[in-house]
């Protein structure tokens, strides 16, 4: 299970990086999104999967899943949400301002 999930994470990394390296702003942001998913799955699977009950004490289980990575990922989800939202609007504004969403054409001027 862990090894399968790690491979899934690897696939997400690959397509994420490929999208990040492309020219269109939308693709780059989608790439970031996929990459984040990969990181989350990776974090979960490194810890070991399906061991014990959900980390709720009401379950009265003998053992629980490690809550630390979950708290970590929860934080990460929210941060990546704000990152995605911000970069989306940034991309949107860039397009409105410059009329293009191609990062190759958005190249800064050579100084002087």
């Amino acid at each position: 299970m862990e090894i399968l999930m790690t491979i899934v994470a690897g696939t997400l990394f690959t397509s994420g990086v490929y999208l990040i390296l492309s020219k269109t702003l939308l693709r780059i942001i989608m790439g970031l999104s996929l990459f984040t998913h990969g990181v989350h799955i990776m974090l979960m699977s490194i810890n070991g999967l399906k061991r014990g009950a959900a980390p709720l004490l009401e379950e009265q289980a003998a053992s629980y899943t490690d809550p630390v990575p979950q708290a970590l990922i929860l934080t990460s989800i929210v941060i990546s949400f704000s990152l995605t939202a911000f970069s989306l609007v940034l991309a949107y504004r860039t397009y409105k301002e410059h009329g293009t969403d191609d990062v190759e054409r958005l190249r800064g001027q050579d100084h002087e």
Binding site: A54, L56, L57, E58, L74, V78
Partner: peptide, 8 residues
Amino acid sequence: HNNPGGGF
């Protein structure tokens, strides 16, 4: 606090 959920 006790079940899945929370501020976020």
